Amino acid sequence: MQFIGFVNTVSLPDSVLPYGLYVREIDLTPVNKYGVDMRVRKLIRYCPNLVSITLGQATSVKADTLQLMGRYCQNVHTLEMGGMISFPFMFDCDFSGMIGLRRLSLLTTPVQSTSLNTIPSSIRHLQIAQLDALQHGEFVTFLKQHPRLISLSVKRCRHINSDFAALILQLPKLSILELIGPEVNDESLKGFFDIPTQLHTLILRQTQITDATLRMFADGCLVVQNLDITNNAHVSQRGIDALLRKKKFEKISSNL
């Protein structure tokens, strides 16, 4: 069934079966090249039991439509948002009504930091990528308000480029941390490995770290079970070997 037909079916006012009640997950990635905002508004109204919504990249869904989710889709626990073609500039979005939200991905989404502050305390997994307007201090403030995050992924955020230790200190329950992009370097990770905590998984990919970071890791008290340091051009096998002489991992991944 094509997307338009699907929307028309679930939104029939006098249908034999309440099809919308059985819809749990929606992935709009295949149709996000079309103007889908009006139909998404219908889906939100007629599918109250949605638990997962993927908007895909460059979606035409508008901010006020997203706010309807808080009113009609309070069971949603997973939301993935890409860039929004209908908003070439920064915009505000209110997530506060999504009281069951646990997993949120914001990928090149042009939201202001005030929008982040509306994310409910139920959030446990957060992924952000290329949020160029988000400043380091604003992100620290956000994390202070969400100390129960279990996993955090930060990818190529231009201004999240210093003092990653300050970020992690706000998250005592953190288990999985992913840092990707050239903003991550030796200087930005100073003090990070001195945090007396344990991570199940640490991912450092496509960064500017060198063997100096691995030496800080080896001498620090941070404990990591699974380490992924693939695609770091300035890390050598010698640095990895020196790390392994002092630290033990259940699994370590590198492309050397």
Rank of each mutant, 00 (worst) to 15 (best):
F3H: 08
G5M: 03
G5H: 14
F6S: 08
P13C: 04
S15N: 11
V16D: 08
P18Q: 02
G20N: 02
G20L: 01
Y22I: 04
R24N: 07
R24Y: 06
I26W: 04
D27H: 10
N32K: 06
K33E: 11
K33I: 01
K42T: 04
K42V: 00
K42P: 00
K42Y: 08
L43Q: 03
C47N: 04
C47W: 03
L50G: 11
V51W: 12
S52K: 13
T54E: 14
L55N: 08
L55G: 06
G56T: 08
G56I: 05
T59R: 02
V61E: 13
A63Y: 06
T65M: 07
G70A: 08
G70C: 06
R71V: 15
V76N: 11
V76D: 12
V76L: 08
H77C: 12
T78W: 03
E80L: 09
G83V: 00
G83F: 00
D94M: 03
I99S: 15
S105Q: 10
L106M: 10
L107D: 15
T108K: 13
V111T: 03
L116C: 08
N117H: 13
I119N: 11
I119H: 09
P120Y: 03
S121K: 15
H125L: 03
Q127I: 09
I128L: 13
A129I: 00
Q130V: 00
Q130S: 10
Q135N: 09
H136D: 14
L143G: 10
L143S: 10
V154N: 04
V154E: 02
K155E: 13
R156Y: 09
R156W: 05
H159A: 04
I160R: 10
N161G: 07
S162F: 08
S162C: 14
S162D: 09
D163M: 11
A165Q: 13
A166Y: 00
L167I: 12
L174T: 07
L177K: 11
E178M: 07
I180E: 11
G181F: 05
P182H: 12
E183G: 15
V184E: 12
E187Q: 14
K190Q: 14
K190D: 10
G191K: 05
F192R: 02
I195D: 05
I195K: 03
P196G: 04
T201L: 13
L202P: 06
I203L: 07
I203F: 02
R205H: 11
R205L: 07
R205W: 03
Q206M: 04
Q208A: 13
I209D: 10
T213P: 07
L214Q: 10
N226W: 02
N226Q: 13
N226I: 09
L227W: 04
L227V: 08
L227N: 11
T230N: 12
A233R: 15
H234I: 01
V235C: 07
Q237M: 06
I240Q: 06
L243I: 01
L243M: 02
K246W: 00
K246I: 00
K246A: 07
K248E: 13
F249R: 03
S253C: 15
S254L: 02
N255C: 05
L256W: 13
